[in-house]
């Protein structure tokens, strides 16, 4: 028996909006610790990992580990039927071939019930090494979204150059070139507006904007985004780990005491000069 109740159903809507255009079929792994999902896009260039802790739910019961494989487009269509302020309840029986979604209106006078068919997915599961990244940039998520969108007008790839005092996002294409430079901010009253750079060495790497624009769909989940990267190592060195990790924390919207209840992490392989 599995049952998870989320008063802020809008969080699930935002999560689906953030992943459904990147991966179509994926499995939710449900355990007593929470719900998680990991899937690659069809070209195997990016991977999305979502985690929601059990204590982020208002009620959570998971008697045994379950894998709920489903089409995310279908799930998204059904989740869209919930109002933003609805409570969403996910229920699954043991060994069933479907899950039930209940949407409770705030005044509890209306309950909508939907069922979605489950799929048996033979998904490829990649082991993500526990790695330390040399460069971490924290910045406002809406600024990151804007930069990726604007630079897509110029070229297919963004080159991220990071030094201690700031980070530069640049793109070049047939029409010309463009760049945006962000300086690290002094400690401010508004942490959500701050740009923080933590680094061991300077870095310059290129990534496909098509994917970063997909990742930026998670912007409504979090005011800040964290980019983690490591620099290239010369040829002949042991295998480098220079994927870019774009991370959004998932918080509950408790204004007085917000707490992190999970995350979305996107991993993106770099573009490398031949």
């Amino acid at each position: 028996m599995f049952e998870a109740r989320l008063i802020q159903g809008s969080i699930l809507k935002k999560i689906l909006d953030a992943i459904k255009d990147l991966v179509t079929d994926a499995s939710w792994d449900c355990s007593p610790n929470g719900m998680s999902l990991q899937a690659m896009d069809t070209s195997h260039v990016s991977l999305v990992s979502v985690s929601l802790n059990s204590d982020g739910f208002d009620k959570y019961r998971c008697d045994r580990n379950l894998t709920l494989g489903m089409n995310l487009i279908s799930l998204s269509k059904i989740i869209k039927c919930a109002a933003n302020d609805d409570t969403i309840i996910i229920k699954a029986g043991d060994g069933g071939d479907k899950i039930t979604l209940l949407f409770e209106a705030q005044n509890e006078s209306e309950v909508a019930e939907y069922e979605i068919k489950l799929m048996n997915l033979d998904s490829e599961y990649l082991g993500i090494p526990d790695t330390t990244y040399n460069v971490t940039i924290k910045m406002p998520s809406n600024k990151f979204q804007r930069i990726c969108r604007d630079l897509s007008q110029i070229g297919d790839a963004v080159t991220i150059s990071c030094a201690k005092d700031g980070v530069r996002f640049g793109a070049a294409g047939d029409l010309g070139s463009g760049s945006i430079r962000l300086a690290q901010t002094a400690t401010s009253d508004k942490p959500e507006d701050s740009v923080t750079i933590s680094m061991q060495e300077a870095l310059c790497q290129s990534f496909a904007l098509k994917y970063l624009n997909h990742f930026a769909k998670a912007t409504p989940l979090s005011a800040q985004v964290t980019l983690s990267m490591s620099p290239d190592v010369p040829l002949g060195e042991p295998l480098l780990f220079n994927v870019c990790v774009v991370e959004y924390n998932i918080s509950d919207n408790d204004d007085e005491n917000p707490s992190t209840i999970g995350f979305i992490r996107y991993y993106l392989a770099p573009k490398i000069d031949d």
């Binding site: 260039v45 993500i128 090494p129």
Partner: peptide, 14 residues
Amino acid sequence: TPLQKTLYTFFLKS
């Protein structure tokens, strides 16, 4: 044009 790497280069298939 730069080559697009895939994640198989970085992550272990498990």
